[in-house]
Every structure is written in structure tokens, then in C-alpha cells.
């Protein structure tokens, strides 16, 4: 699932999909934690999942706000269109 999210992140150009892919990746990481916690019968894995949940919530809030700004500026959700930097 992590790999799927990663591929989504790399392949899609729509910012909304990228954010979703990130959610998937975070979720995958959380799943890994919970599985590991279950394997050893420890609560730590679930605690970590809680933290990941917090991070995901914060990230999605800021990310969506940025998405709105991007859309108002460029009228598209294509992240490559937002590239005006000339290195």
C-alpha cells in the first residue's frame, strides 16, 4: 500500500491526487506500526498510529488550504503548471 501511494504521488499531476496518495502512504505506515505492535503485543504501535493520525490531520488541513490557493492562482491543480522557478 505504501508503494501504491508512492507511485500515486509520483505519477499523478493533480494536486488533489497527490494529497490523497500521501494519505495512503501515511495510512500504510500506520498499518505497519499497528501490525508490528500486534505482533509483539505492545501498545506502542498504536500510540505511533495515533501520532500519525495527528500528523495526517494537520497535513491535510494545510495541504488543502495550499491547494485552494494554488487553484485560485493558476486555475488548475496541475503541480507542474505551478513550476515557474527557473533554475
Amino acid at each position: 500500500m505504501f508503494a501504491l501511494g508512492l507511485i500515486g504521488l509520483l505519477v499523478r499531476r493533480n494536486l488533489l491526487f497527490i494529497l490523497m496518495a500521501i494519505e495512503v502512504m501515511l495510512n500504510a505506515a500506520g498499518l505497519a506500526f499497528v501490525s508490528a505492535g500486534a505482533r509483539w503485543g505492545q501498545a506502542d504501535g498504536q500510540v505511533m498510529f495515533l501520532f500519525i493520525l495527528t500528523v495526517a490531520a494537520a497535513e491535510v488541513a494545510v495541504g488543502l488550504a495550499l491547494l485552494l490557493r494554488l487553484y485560485h492562482r493558476f486555475h488548475s491543480l496541475d503541480v507542474d503548471a505551478a513550476s515557474e522557478m527557473r533554475g
Binding site: L50, T54, V55, A57, A58, V62, L64, A65, L68, R69
Partner: peptide, 20 residues
């Protein structure tokens, strides 16, 4: 720390989103 992060995200999202 997580609570701080949430607070920061709240303020940041409000700031970024309220520009319009």
C-alpha cells in the same frame, strides 16, 4: 508535541486559506 502540531496546522491552514 502533537497538540502543538495541530495548533500550528490550524493557524497555518487558516492563514493560507484566508488570503482570498
Amino acid at each position: 508535541l502533537a497538540s502543538f502540531l495541530l495548533l500550528g496546522a490550524l493557524v497555518g491552514a487558516y492563514h493560507v486559506g484566508s488570503r482570498r
